[in-house]
Write a protein that binds this DNA or RNA. Structure first.
Lengths: 331, 331
DNA sequence: CTGAAAGCGCTAACAC
DNA sequence: GTGTTAGCGCTTTCAG
């Protein structure tokens, strides 16, 4: 122990934890700090935790951390915020398997995590298991009702932002949506993000005295983006602007457009969602409304650490990343 | 304590940890197990760790966990292996900042991690800080010399695999490399992966009695892939097959090819490296030699847990992911 | 203001 | 075979 530095362990403990309950002689303080620095003393967090019931460790459970860069940035944001306050992250994923989830939750509980972020990598239903009910928990990206803080991207605002980017550039007519609400046989009502994004788009277009010229409903994968644009063109539509509901759809759309000899953005402007790596890889680079991964992670941990509990919905803005796929049309 | 289940804590501790030093009455065993199950007893790992000096937690430190899906899959593999053996992962990233790294290493050390995976998301120089010298450490993706196990993708073998895919499909002449060794002004000697991949390619081509027709050296980004292919074509070359040194280059190459009216794979076959998401998004889908992210993570943790130490290099195979971008040419 | 002492929950000597 | 006991390294009451 660094306590062999002139004072008792009590005194040392007090100055190191910066308590002022009992006034400690400035001299003693100096001596303790000096000794601690000199010996490179670092308290054993395990021992401390046993005593204080606080591990300064928070669990991060997600369904998938692999697929998509979503996870990486979320963890990054969460970690930065955690580290700022002296916390560390126990990261794990369930792969959607309840058995794996149980095991993993137990392991975390065994290690006395102070709180957990229960994250889903795509906005969808899902609730933390009962075993976590004793702990502070925030749900990231969950749509299901949950009696605690929930963090979600502001998809509605994102939809508005996308449409506004087009309107501000002077677009008015012949604006088509590719992907739409994601209405497929599997998801006849569309998906959460699709419904909200489209509602935001519709709102702004309505405000501008216009409306979407058509919406191609499909799963949000490149091939459907291709098919969507191709079929639009085949049916004689002549879009001036495309709202692609994600970047992968935009990839497909680019291909279809190029094939027909239509240039982006000269002939048709494109705005998209997610701001994945693709957006900056495509040529021309793609203007996209970003999923605020990093901020979502940050917000989740901050919410946990601020002790804000109780049922509430926290919504994180989706910022526009302007690139080269929108042409300003002079009126 | 569940120990109030008929026997003493010692007995309970013994049966729960499955020790046979002292023969315990089968009856007692049953009673203990029953009680444990009934009460849902789980030992407090914090307390146990304090006593045993084992936390069953391993630290995973990387420079970037965000960019590229690399990180996600690596963590996934590491986590699966860890969890199988009752370990959990403390995940953190340094963002390449030594200050951040120090803080984070200290926090991990405070929490008494049993071992650490020191990972770099791109194969490059880098060594774990001295503070970690007391702990079992494996280095993932580090090129620098290090006195312990190092895990690397088998880039040389990967290069061979890519070339063999072309040769096996009947290609022989007019095979060009795009990206090459990544020789740029910043990296005049190319990069590690580039040198090895190209060496593997050269070897296999030599074995087949031929050689690369040309190599366009550039940074491995889409625009350079585009430029590379465009300039090749402009100079009158007529490639029958392209070895793109990563998928992003292939993206650019596809665009250049399409622009000149050359079809993949009818006119030119393409094989690539990394097997990123892009590979399956492109049309036609891209045959790519995969970076074995998941396996790298798995191997890292397994190596750590198996207690294999000492300086050695562990190389993980890069498997081919055959898709639609190679045409079989009949001789 | 400082020191002695208890105890967090568990494991592992060591007696019974 | 089973129970008693002493810590792991730290915080925190409670007397000096």
């Amino acid at each position: 122990m660094a306590r062999r530095a002139g004072v008792s362990r009590t005194t040392a403990s007090f100055v190191l934890s910066g308590r002022t309950d009992m006034r400690i002689s400035p001299d003693a303080q100096r001596r303790v700090n000096a000794a601690a620095a000199e010996l490179g003393y670092r308290p054993n967090q395990t021992a401390r935790s046993l005593r204080t019931q606080v591990t300064r460790t928070i669990g991060m459970i997600s369904d998938t951390i692999a697929t998509t860069q979503f996870a990486g940035e979320v963890i990054h944001g969460a970690l930065d915020t955690a580290l700022e306050r002296g916390y560390l992250l126990l990261v794990a994923e369930t792969s959607g398997d309840p058995i794996a989830e149980k095991k993993l939750v137990d392991e975390m509980l065994d290690r006395q995590v102070d709180a957990v972020v229960y994250a889903m990598m795509f906005t969808k239903p899902g609730c933390p298991p009962d075993a976590l009910s004793e702990l502070p928990v925030v749900v990231l990206n969950g749509i299901d009702d949950f009696d605690g803080p929930r963090i979600l991207p502001d998809e509605l605002g994102g939809g508005r932002t996308a449409a506004r980017a087009l309107v501000d550039a002077g677009h008015h007519d012949d604006i088509y949506a590719i992907g739409g609400r994601h209405r497929t046989t599997d998801t006849p009502d569309g998906v959460y993000a699709g419904r909200l994004r489209m509602r935001g788009v519709d709102e702004v277009l309505a405000d501008a005295g216009t409306a979407i010229a058509g919406s191609y409903e499909c799963a949000w994968e490149p091939e459907h983006g291709y098919e969507g644009v191709a079929s639009l063109l085949d049916e004689g539509h002549r879009p001036k602007a495309l709202v692609c509901l994600n970047d992968r759809l935009a990839l497909g759309a680019y291909q279809a457009l190029e094939e027909r000899g239509l240039r982006v953005p000269e002939d048709v402007s494109v705005v998209s969602f997610d701001d994945s790596d693709l957006a900056s890889w495509l040529r021309p680079t793609l203007t996209s409304v970003a999923l605020p991964h990093y901020e979502l992670g940050k917000t989740a941990v901050a919410t946990l650490l601020d002790g804000t509990s109780g049922r509430r919905l926290i919504t994180v803005p989706m910022p526009l990343r302007p690139r080269d796929s929108i042409r300003t049309v002079s009126a």
